[in-house]
Design a protein around this nucleic acid. Structure first.
Lengths: 192, 192
DNA sequence: CCAAAAGTGTTGAATGTACACCCATGG
DNA sequence: CCATGGGTGTACATTCAACACTTTTGG
């Protein structure tokens, strides 16, 4: 029976699988005095999340208070949104991710350790919901220093084609890569 | 005596006064079953806030759960941060505002109804914590369609000088004015 | 006239997008 | 040698910071 004094902690883990941005949702009741991250760790495997941030706190339709977290993972699994609250949280999580992808290195938490630009492009297409040019994706992310090349290539498939270079994200922590579009502090133009 | 099952709703209202970005903090205990915005309305005068958004939920040092809201106001008053938790929330609010100022029209909620570019510049300097060029501020905000001129000028002071034109924000609701720095959907360049 | 404050013009750099073209592989 | 997929070069538009210059006022 729902208790309006209880507090639920919800994990919304986003990840790309089969070209789709899936949301895996899990929740637990927070014990009295329990830290939020402890409850979150009971709700989901935090080690599988490359990035975690708080999403939103709201009163659920059953009257319970809930605090949702957005997690990003390479290996999304199970726990699809069940009720209306969970659908809304999943949508909020997707919207948040879409925003962050364009000005942070958030992709690191969705893509495998190393990847080709084509593979990365598929991740971005799934997460953003619109087409992305591999050419420009590579150029933007390399210029910003978000990606770096690693040794080795991926062999082409049966259809042939030039072998693809492998890349990785330079950092595995969320970083802002395009800090201010305008109104920078004076004399702070990037020059590297 | 602090009760670890109680839920506190905290309003952090930011506003510029005398060239400083002040944080006015107020909190209430949320009643069982009470909606979050109802509790927030008991904590502060929501009508005086041009914009409100949720900031963060955390467990306070005394064990209570707290959900903080960021508000922006033209008329900051009283309620300065008292304890360590409140100081941290005020700092989080300032950081959030700094980020939003550069890619949204958030200034509308801090500036008076109409203002000169110099006056608006003072607001931005206080909020951002670094110098801002009035020339470029005007150009960027006009180009984005964030500001518009209104009739009339502000008479110069004793020292003379050209009378300043008056401007206002075109919208009084938070809008994103610089949506994607990169990775826009194909063919979506602004052209007007 | 001169100082002060506001506003406009202009330049140069950085950033992104689009698209043509070249490279490397399988069949 | 051709189709396919990967990558680079180049041209162009947009945006912004910096700074010189002009405008309009008070004394």
């Amino acid at each position: 029976m729902p208790d309006s004094t209880s507090h639920v902690v919800i994990s919304v883990a986003l990840g790309v699988r089969a070209g789709r941005l899936e949301a895996a949702i899990r929740s637990v009741e927070r014990a009295p005095g329990e830290p939020l991250d402890a409850a979150l760790a009971r709700a989901t495997d935090v080690a599988a999340l490359g990035h975690v941030e708080q999403l939103e706190t709201r009163v659920l339709r059953d009257g319970r208070l809930a605090t949702a977290y957005l997690g990003l993972t390479r290996t999304p699994d199970g726990g699809l949104p069940a009720d209306a609250d969970e659908h809304e949280l999943a949508e909020a999580a997707r919207a948040r991710l879409r925003g962050k992808l364009s000005y942070t290195n958030a992709g690191f938490a969705l893509a495998p350790e190393t990847f080709t630009i084509s593979e990365l492009r598929e991740v971005y297409v799934a997460a953003l919901g619109h087409d992305v040019s591999a050419t420009n994706l590579q150029r933007v992310l390399l210029r910003r220093g978000v990606l770096e090349r690693v040794d080795g290539v991926r062999a082409p498939g049966r259809a042939g084609g030039r072998p693809a270079s492998l890349f990785r994200f330079r950092s595995q922590r969320l970083e802002i890569t395009d800090e201010f579009a305008a109104l920078r502090p004076p004399g702070s133009r990037a020059s590297g």
